[in-house]
Design a protein around this nucleic acid. Structure first.
Length: 318
DNA sequence: TAGGCCATCTGGTCCT
DNA sequence: AGGACCAGATGGCCTA
């Protein structure tokens, strides 16, 4: 099926026989004359190959190829063009889907788009991190979360995440193995935990208080904290490798706070972010909504303003 | 200038 | 036969 009108001048930008045109360029449309010329070229080449035979016999086995009738040749080229158009359309659809993914993944930025591969990696990390959070049933370590997000991402992307998080990228750079390691205290970390009663497992010593326990402050051992929390596996465990690259999200939005981009309205409509944590009829929310909810990881019922997230966002947005 | 990323073309394969 | 999907090739653009 033709998904795009064949006549669509934009879609039908043609670069027959190898030439390529970018979307911005005013690529020419192959004229029928050019098509005919190309066809003749091919036919001529075939003829030459046959004539090259020293015995004067056709080089190619079998009966001499039936010369395309003009009508058939045109039809073949037409089908090629249609196939090209379909392929373009298909790839555009794929790119649209990728763009959608970019928007729901942390650190969406219109100006600094994540590459395709980085988007996929980040999405995978994001899913993995969220899954871990859910299965753990407790508040995860923020840095661990970030580190998980950055696993396998490129340096620029990691920096981007860092920028979003207002953290120093050095704090969660990857080592040579592609692992994320933390080597310093995130000075602004406390600001991410504005709730005095934070009960989740926060980086040791960083939360202003916990109900479970108060762990000693170990400023240079966050990775250990990360490992303990995500001791099951790393995102890599389910994928072959990361090529030692890591990529960072653009803003803190999807994860620790709502993204403040143009789609925010849509989020509200579609149970995006905020949930993705949609209300469950009769229960208010499918997740616990505690009065002393802790920003990054607590879930809020749709409709409630993510005030705390917004507050945090002010610090995260570039 | 090299390398990364991307869009497009193209031919092959599979499926309906 | 024709469409979807895929991967390789190619060339343009951008950035370090």
């Amino acid at each position: 099926m033709l998904t795009v009108p064949f006549e669509d001048p934009d879609m039908m930008r043609e670069s027959q026989f190898g030439a390529t045109f970018t979307r911005q360029e005013d690529a020419r449309t192959l004229s029928s004359a050019e098509l005919k010329e190309a066809e003749d070229d091919n036919t001529d080449r075939e003829e030459e190959e046959r004539e090259d035979d020293e015995n004067g016999l056709p080089k190619k086995k079998g009966a001499r190829k039936k010369k395309f009738s003009e009508g058939r040749g045109e039809r073949v080229k037409m089908r090629r063009q249609e196939a090209n158009a379909r392929e373009r359309s298909r790839m555009h659809g794929l790119n649209d889907a990728l763009e959608s993914l970019r928007k729901v993944v942390p650190c969406y930025s219109k100006t600094q788009k994540l590459s395709k591969i980085e988007t996929l990696r980040l999405a995978k990390n994001y899913i993995w991190a969220l899954s871990e959070t859910l299965s753990a049933g407790k508040r995860p370590d923020l840095l661990a979360f970030v580190q998980t997000l950055c696993k396998g991402l490129s340096q620029p992307t990691t920096n981007l995440v860092a920028g979003c998080l207002q953290l120093n990228a050095r704090n969660f750079l990857t080592d040579h193995n592609g692992d994320v390691s933390f080597s310093g205290r995130p000075h602004q970390y406390d600001s991410l935990y504005p709730y005095p009663n934070a009960e989740m497992a926060t980086p040791t010593g960083l939360s202003s208080g916990t109900r479970d326990s108060v762990k000693p402050f170990r400023p240079y051992n966050y990775y250990a904290s990360y490992e303990s929390y995500y001791d099951s596996a790393s995102p890599e465990s389910s994928s072959p490798r990361f090529d030692g690259q890591m990529s960072p999200p653009n803003n803190y939005n999807g994860i620790f706070s709502l993204k403040k981009h143009e789609d925010q309205v849509e989020y509200s409509k579609n149970c995006h972010y905020g949930m993705r944590y949609c209300n469950v009829p009769g229960r208010g929310s499918m997740y616990r909504v505690s009065p002393d909810s802790h920003f990054p990881y607590d879930l809020h019922p749709r409709g409630q303003s993510f005030q705390s997230q917004d507050e945090l966002n002010t610090g995260f947005h570039n």
